[in-house]
Amino acid sequence: MGGVDAYLIAAQSDGLVSTSCQGEACRRFGVTFAEAEAAILTLGLFPSRYQRNRETISNEGQLALLQSCVAVIGCGGLGGYIVEELARLGVGRIVAADPDVFEEHNLNRQLLSRIDNLGEPKVAAAAHRVAEINPAVQLVPHRKALGVENGRELLSGVTVAVDALDNVQSRLELAELCRELAIPLVHGAIAGWYGQVATQLPGDDISIYLASAAGGSKGVESRLGNPSFTPAVVASLQVAEVCKVILGQGEPLSGRMLIGNLLEMEFEEIRL
């Protein structure tokens, strides 16, 4: 990497390396965009694209994000925004799982759905979107539902998992898998004007708070639906949690759940 380092040092300006110089380093030295990004950050420099993160994310923090792998389970309303924000944040590897294709009724809220990609697998659209946004980020698409059989393989090597699922049973299975594998899990769920977020760190168990009192698998979203803004709010809260867990900063929602009511604009915190 000696030649790469010398090139990057010569190419930097005010400690920043532009996207085009990062790409040129890849061409000249046969490294990937992610490898060039790691070299930039290791030199104490910043890829220009992250300059507005300023003091919020340090050089070391940006490198930790690049070297992390986040599993996004479900690529619908929550998952679309989560993938978008993780890619812009610079999380190096995103494992995305969802068995579905886009349908017309997704267009009211699912960020990655478009009129011209109806019928396309959601994880394929996610991979395409990430490649457009940030070439340092690799999205690994799995066009399947997470289950007990494939769960261990899907979550292998994952730093943090994100619950962007749409039914209780799958959520409980994911939460259990994460407990078994000691992987931090950021839960999110939505219905109408309402949403909730909680983080299950290794040693925590949030499952009783995810279940239905009567044992069903669908919540009030089956009656209320989901508008455009609720998934965006909850997904952003989830990504903030993911970022904090990776950086080891702040206070994650461990041992508590945040329940938002966007109709009356009230946020309730309950202790778990």
């Binding site: 479900g74 619908g76 309303g77 929550l78 998952g79 619950d163 962007a164 699922l165 749409d166 039914n167 209780v168 959520r171 999110g188 769920a189 939505i190 219905a191 309402y194 949403g195 909730q196 009783i208 708070y209 239905s212 009192a213 009567a214 069903g216 698998s217 669908k218 919540g219 009030v220 979203e221 089956s222 989901n226 998934p231 329940i259 309950i270 202790r271 778990l272």
Partner: peptide, 25 residues
Amino acid sequence: CRHVQLDQELVDGDVLAIFPLLGGG
């Protein structure tokens, strides 16, 4: 502030909070 089931008996002075199941994503 403690999680309970539907068959939980209540006593004088209890505060019961009920939230709908949010299941969408």
